[in-house]
């Protein structure tokens, strides 16, 4: 063993960053885990239940929190990574507040931002009462109460899929992968709060690609009576009674359709986080057409950047669910351990 163990800076304390930090720490590597918020956990903190099994997100957060407490991890909240410079075999990492670290390798796990739904102007988010995002609905679930701004329990709700995904108008050609299953999960949960609610999912395609997702979709139809209408909503407006009017094409009937709902939930897509984007720009990291960080190889190097010693984990590279994020983070940790070993700085 070398006298000083290797040191890795991890940018981002969400599921990916924490999982990778934990694995690195357990193999004897010192980790500085930098998180912009005061608490670790990232987007998971705002989510109520996870799909497909609707487990409480706090269970995953508590698993992650246990990892952070490892003695080899130095958790620095309220700080960001602003820039990474390569100096020979090591890296100089500059933080947002002007601090600096020297690292043998850097892992970027800066995650995603939710699509800002006000950019889809025609859905009236931020303008009409009771047009909310999927993330805001999770908060309502957590608080145990789904109510309109007027304090009424909604009896009819719409869910709009693909808000900010598969949409050239907002510059996002890609599918965010998780919004369909989120809509299905949330529709079912709404029914548990409001048993007689009528719920309509407006979708372009149902992309239920994950394990047990399709089964969840079937359950939503069979046991919860959720209605699915194939058609992208084109416009939202309000009636004189302040109910939301949804316009879409019912593509399977081949005719336009309109209906009024009490509440509309927008399935916000995922975009590379603002912090990740800035870090990539400052550090000369490549991004793809989808603006996410571009990996060195799509098939066997998705954890590697094109700069030797800088690695990626999680949703900074593409939309990913928690399961895949954690696997991806483990892959990143394995890559880093390999890299440090091969460059003679780790023999664990």
């Amino acid at each position: 063993m070398p006298e000083m163990s290797a040191h890795v800076v991890v940018a981002g304390g969400g599921a990916a960053g924490i999982e990778a930090a934990g694995m690195l720490a357990r193999s004897g590597i010192r980790v500085t885990l930098i998180e912009k918020e005061t608490e670790p956990g990232g987007h998971l903190k705002g989510w109520y239940h996870l799909f497909p099994d609707r487990r409480d997100s706090r269970e995953v957060i508590s698993y992650l929190s246990r990892l952070i407490s490892h003695e080899n991890i130095d958790f620095i909240p309220g700080e960001t990574v602003a820039k990474i410079d390569r100096k020979g075999l090591s890296f100089s990492v500059t933080t947002g507040k002007g601090g600096s670290f020297t690292a043998d390798a850097v892992l970027i796990a800066t995650g995603f931002d939710m699509f800002r739904c006000e950019r889809k102007e025609e859905y009236g988010y931020g303008i009409y009462d009771n047009v909310i995002t999927s993330a805001e609905l999770e908060v309502m679930f957590r608080n145990g109460e789904i109510k309109t701004v007027g304090g009424i329990v909604p009896s009819k709700l719409g869910m709009i899929h693909c808000v900010g995904s598969r949409d050239e108008k907002v510059g996002n050609l890609y599918c965010s992968k998780l919004c369909c299953v989120t809509a299905v999960k949330q529709a079912m949960e709404i029914k548990e709060y409001i048993s007689d609610a009528r719920i309509f999912c407006f979708y372009m395609d149902m992309r239920m690609g994950g394990a047990m997702y399709e089964e969840l979709y079937r359950e939503a139809q069979e046991k919860y009576g959720i209605n699915f209408i194939r058609g992208k909503v084109s416009e939202v407006s309000v009636s004189i009674d302040n109910r939301l009017i949804v316009k879409s094409e019912d593509t399977l009937a081949g005719r336009p359709l309109k209906m009024e709902v009490d509440m509309l939930v927008l399935m916000a897509g995922m975009e590379i986080s603002d912090g990740g984007k800035k870090l990539a720009l400052a550090s000369g990291l490549k991004t793809g057409e989808n603006r996410f960080l571009a990996s060195a190889d799509n098939h066997y190097g998705s954890n590697r950047s094109h700069i030797s010693g800088i690695f990626y984990a999680g949703t900074c590279t593409a939309p990913m669910n928690v399961t895949d994020t954690i696997s991806h983070a483990r892959g990143a940790a394995a890559e880093i351990i390999d890299y440090l070993r091969n460059t003679g700085r780790h023999n664990g």
Partner: peptide, 29 residues
């Protein structure tokens, strides 16, 4: 207008089928 005015339509027929043949809900067209 060609629009399907969902709220004005009579859905009793559909509801009757859902009740007596719940598998109808599973159709994905």
């Amino acid at each position: 207008a060609r629009v399907i005015d969902y709220d004005k339509n009579d859905r009793r027929i559909a509801e009757y089928i859902y009740e007596h043949e719940p598998s109808f809900r599973l159709c994905i067209e």
